[in-house]
Design a protein around this nucleic acid. Structure first.
Length: 584
RNA sequence: GCGCCCGUAGCUCAGUGGAUUAGAGCAUCGGUCUUCUAAACCGAGGGUCGCAGGUUCGAGUCCUGCCGGGCGCGCCA
């Protein structure tokens, strides 16, 4: 309907253009919106207001001229100028009711565009370091990424999802030493466990596994390892010095293959758990890219060599720097440390270059807000490599602060203090957790109150939407029991005259816009807002009007209407990967 | 200090430059189950949209400055 109106308006514009009143028509400038206030008709257009200035005409007069040159449209009841110069369109009731048949005939495809009609997109999300289980802080990215993937697919994109595994660098050494020291404890060694090591119980589990399967083969004397070590403390620097000392000595004592095995056993165990948690959470991935592999395949060397050949690198104080400030970054960045090791940034350049070379129109990264300072340098690197940095979109997700009532829970992987994603799911359920995460704009800070989410889960908005769906299913079930003929094909919808029925039809017609907007803005929360509104209108209608009435034509028209509502609720919930239950 | 994000009802938040009256939920108060699921509905109260300018026919929305909060500013990842 909207498209028809835009085309009508374009025609009128063309006519006025030929009369010399207006510039060349441009359909992109024509905005037709579904109105909020029924007094403004069903659709409104601000074209006259937008063009009045350059046409040097009074906006109301111009609106009048546009209306006079609009082609016939049998769906319209009236077209009039309103307010400062809006053109308001009022639809005939039959035209409004068409939406019901449209929803039902398109069924699961309602609100979607043909698959593959838009760009290919890669979404990289979560990518949590494999040094501990996922916690509720990761949940937001997981929910956003997986919902966005579905929404973009519905909007016609071809979407693939990826998890980048940071299985290299110092954190792997910390992981290995943490596991090994716990292992030594199990062997009976008097270990002084470093403050800066990973403290979580999951390390104990991994160590216990190693001890069970390998016995004491990796045992060494902790006294010898520790000999000459500084004290563990008193501040972060001190903690790190003690930790680094232990790592260094451990690598002397242990065979390199043992050290590698320690790390890889830990990473494998943790990754397996991460995969399982994500899978249960409804987040799936097509690719798991390993940083380690990127290094082993010499991708980092190759990419940095490319930068060097292009003249974007220089040496300073023994380190290799990338001149990122020439590409809009705040300052230049080190890519290779004076000790010869690549920085994380270097591997990330290689990773992103590789990603962009894989043929996606757009790559979307979902990052925690604490990484925002990082976006500039990655874009700078892409640009230096001749890749359009606009093709990389970085979505920053603000933190979710976790509360238990008024008590804020601070979390850190190091200290092992965190609430796992798994326990969150266990406490509040997958559906509620996902909905809760995406119902807020992602650049908005989120307060996640566990107490509220658990104790008052009944008030959680997800149940409100699901309940509307279940109620409709229940009515249809009842209709079946009472042998009422449920119309599978279009029937006369003229009995739909109630205010609530008109509101529902209008809301149904807005669904495709809600999906497209969520896709375009990369914001699933528009969809949650839409679904709450549709559910609200249904609940109000349910309380005001009985569907199963004696008069068959009325009953059937209403059944068709609520079936369309059920379909739309189901489609929307499906995009959020949330269950649409038939009963509750 | 510099950079990014945010500031809307008591609380948590929607709000696509658009329409005399800025909307939800929670909380508070008052109603609605003999009738398709009360996990629901109806109603009431509650606002200088942080402050001050500017752009515009029109600003919660865009621009500038200020105030307040969060995050970041490493040869860590």
């Amino acid at each position: 309907m909207k498209a028809t109106l835009v085309s009508n308006l374009t025609q009128a514009w063309q006519t006025l253009h030929q009369q010399g009143l207006l510039p060349d028509p441009n359909p992109d400038r024509i905005e037709v919106v579904s109105t909020k206030d029924p007094r403004h008709g069903d659709y409104a257009c601000n074209l006259a207001l937008v063009l009045a200035r350059e046409a040097n005409l009074n906006a109301r007069d111009l609106a009048e001229q546009i209306i006079q040159n609009l082609p016939e449209n049998s769906d319209l009841l009236s077209t009039e100028v309103a307010g400062p110069g809006f053109i308001n369109f009022q639809l005939r009731p039959e035209a409004k009711a068409e939406i019901v048949d449209q929803v039902l005939s398109q069924a699961t495809n309602y609100g979607t565009r043909p698959p593959g009609s838009e760009q290919r997109i890669l979404i990289e999300y979560v990518s949590a370091n494999p040094t501990g289980p996922l916690h509720v802080g990761h949940g937001r990215g997981a929910a956003l990424g997986s919902c966005l993937a579905r929404i973009l697919e519905a909007a016609g994109h071809t979407v693939e999802c990826e998890y980048f595994i940071n299985d290299a660098g110092r954190q792997m050494d910390i992981l290995a030493i943490s596991v090994w020291l716990r292992y030594l404890e199990l062997c009976g060694e008097p270990v002084v466990f470093p403050e800066a090591g990973y403290q979580g119980d999951y390390i104990l589990d991994i160590a216990a596994d190693c001890h069970r399967t390998r016995g004491d083969v990796w045992r060494a004397s902790f006294e010898n390892i520790r000999a000459g070590a500084p004290d563990d403390g008193p501040d972060e620097d001190g903690h790190n010095m003690y930790l680094d000392f232990l790592i260094l000595r451990a690598r002397d004592f242990l065979d390199e293959t043992v050290w590698t095995e320690l790390a890889s056993v830990a990473v494998d165990t943790l990754l397996e758990r991460i995969r399982r948690d994500l899978d249960h959470f409804g987040a799936s991935f097509d690719y798991w890219q390993s940083e380690r592999k990127l290094l082993d395949d010499r991708k980092v060397e190759q990419t940095i060599a490319q930068l060097r050949e292009a003249g974007h690198l220089y040496e300073l104080e023994g380190a290799l720097w990338f001149r990122s400030s020439e590409f809009g970054d705040e300052k230049d960045r080190v890519v290779q440390r004076s000790n010869g090791q690549w920085t994380y940034f270097a591997t990330d350049i290689a990773y992103h270059a590789d990603k962009m070379a894989r043929g996606y129109g757009t790559a979307i990264n979902i990052w925690g807000a604490d990484h925002h300072g990082y976006a500039g340098r990655v874009r700078a690197a892409l640009q230096a490599l001749g890749i359009d940095p606009e093709r990389l979109e970085i979505l920053l997700v603000q933190f979710a602060s976790l509360y238990r009532g008024k008590q804020k829970i601070s979390m850190s992987t190091r200290s092992g203090e965190f609430v796992t994603l798994q326990s969150l799911q266990h406490e509040v359920g997958q559906d509620a957790a996902r909905f809760f995460y995406v119902m807020r704009k992602s650049d908005q800070h989120l307060d996640f109150d566990l107490q509220l989410a658990t104790e008052q889960s009944v008030d959680n908005p997800v149940y409100y939407v699901q309940y509307a769906h279940a109620r409709i299913c229940s009515i249809l079930e009842r209709a079946k029991d009472e042998d009422i003929n449920i119309p599978e094909d279009p029937c006369d919808l003229s009995p739909l005259t109630d205010e609530g029925e008109r509101a529902l039809q209008k809301q149904l017609s807005r669904y495709p816009d809600a999906v497209l907007r969520s896709a375009r803005e990369r914001e699933p929360h528009h969809l949650t807002v839409y679904l709450r509104k549709l559910a609200q209108e249904f609940h109000a209608y349910y309380n005001a009007v009985a569907v199963l009435v004696d008069e068959l034509p009325v009953c059937q028209a209403r059944l068709r209407l609520i079936m369309a509502v059920r379909q739309t609720l189901g489609n929307g919930l499906n995009l959020l990967n949330i269950d649409a239950p038939e009963s509750m």
